[in-house]
Every structure is written in C-alpha cells, then in structure tokens.
C-alpha cells in the first residue's frame, strides 16, 4: 500500500513537472508569428524594424485581472514604445469557451478603450503554447539581438493587482529600464494570480 501511494506521489510530481518545462525560458530566442490585429492586418515581430524589443502581453477582454491591468498596459506602451519597446497584446482564449474574447469583441474593446497598441488574436493558441503562457495577463519582455528576439523577463507587471496606487515594485518597468540602460535585470521571473487561459476542448 505504501509503495502504491509512493508511486501515485511520484506520478503526480512527474506529470505536474511536465507543465513547468513547457514554454520559453529566459534567454530563449522566440519564433516569430503572424497574427491578425483588430484592424484586420497581420502583424509579425519582423514588421518592427526599429524596435529594440517588445512587451508581449497575453491578455483578453473578459478577465477581471486583465481589466485591472488594462490601463497599466496602455501606460506601459505610452511610456516605452517611443523608447523602442512597444506593447503587443495577444488574446489566446478560445471564443467558444469565452465568447467575450471573440475577435469581434476584441475589436470593440480596443476601440472603446482606445488601445494605442496592437491587439492580436492567437486563434490557434499556438503562440500561447510556445511562450508557455498560462494565464491572463502574462507578460514576456523580449529584446532584439543579432540572434533574434530573446526572452528577458517573464511574469507580472507589478506587485499589486488591486491597487495601482500602492504598487511598490514595478517588475516590468524595472526590467525595461535595465534593458534600456544596458544593465542586468534583477528580477527576471515573477508569478501572479490570473485567469487560466481558456484552452480549446
């Protein structure tokens, strides 16, 4: 019986560990994508000839955590696009599981909230899987190098989802500032509560 439980334990650890190994790690070169923006045009990283990097944010319409961070994502773009790091927002959710996150509703939200950044639809969910995005919002900061677009930071935007006025650590901004100043990033990986990505069933 004891052995049996031990096997269950091990099995559970092994099957769970699998999830952790999926997706990009810090230092990985990402594969470029071609995703449809809310304006109908296809967007790739390669289109941004002058960019020094990217703030890739997996986010969506329906998730209250994404909504709580929406203005902060807009602010990130406003502050860093001119410095060479534009926001690329990507909605990875299956519209059948969450109709609020359909392409049409993305168009509506982008218009209503006057998104200054592109809002892309990862309809096949392939990019979310490649990146290892698990929740919304989930941030990946990339820097453009000779080898390609390299993952520099994965995680949360800051340390307080509910009260922006009480934020103490701006993880994403700290990483971006370090990149811009050519300094090492102190915190490259953080975690945050969020809405699990609605994978196709």
């Amino acid at each position: 019986m004891k052995n049996f439980i031990l096997i269950i334990c091990l099995f559970s650890i092994l099957t769970n560990a699998k999830a952790q190994t999926e997706g990009y790690k810090i230092g990985d070169v990402v594969k470029d994508f071609s995703l449809q923006n809310v304006d109908g045009k296809m967007v790739s990283l390669a289109d941004y000839k002058d960019a020094k990097g990217f703030i890739v944010v997996f986010t969506c319409n329906h998730c209250p955590f994404s909504q709580a961070y929406e203005q902060r994502i807009i602010n990130l773009h406003k502050k860093y696009a001119s410095k060479g790091f534009p926001v690329l927002a990507i909605n990875p959710n299956d519209k059948d599981r969450e109709p609020e996150d359909s392409y049409e509703n993305m168009q509506k939200r982008a218009k209503e909230k006057k998104y200054p950044f592109v809002y892309l639809y990862d309809q096949t969910q392939e990019n979310a899987k490649l990146y290892g995005a698990m929740r919304t919002p989930h941030v990946f900061i990339l820097s453009k190098k000779t080898t390609g677009n390299v993952v520099e930071y994965i995680g949360a935007i800051d340390d307080n989802f509910e009260e922006p006025q009480h934020v103490k650590i701006k993880y994403a901004e700290d990483a971006l500032n370090a990149l811009i100043e050519n300094k090492p990033i102190k915190v490259t990986y953080t975690k945050a509560i969020g809405c699990g990505i609605k994978w196709k069933r």
């Binding site: 698990m134 989930h138 307080n160 009260e163 650590i169 975690k191 945050a192 969020g194 699990g196």
Partner: peptide, 20 residues
C-alpha cells in the same frame, strides 16, 4: 496578500498563478 508573487510559490513551485 497584495503581491501574489510572495505566496504562489508557497502553494507550489510549478503553479503559474492561473485559477483555478
């Protein structure tokens, strides 16, 4: 907790923080 980054790993190292 205001900073999820402080406690998520106390629950589990592999957890991304996605609910449920």
């Amino acid at each position: 907790e205001t900073n999820p980054n402080n406690w998520i790993e106390k629950a589990d190292k592999i957890w991304s923080g996605a609910l449920p």
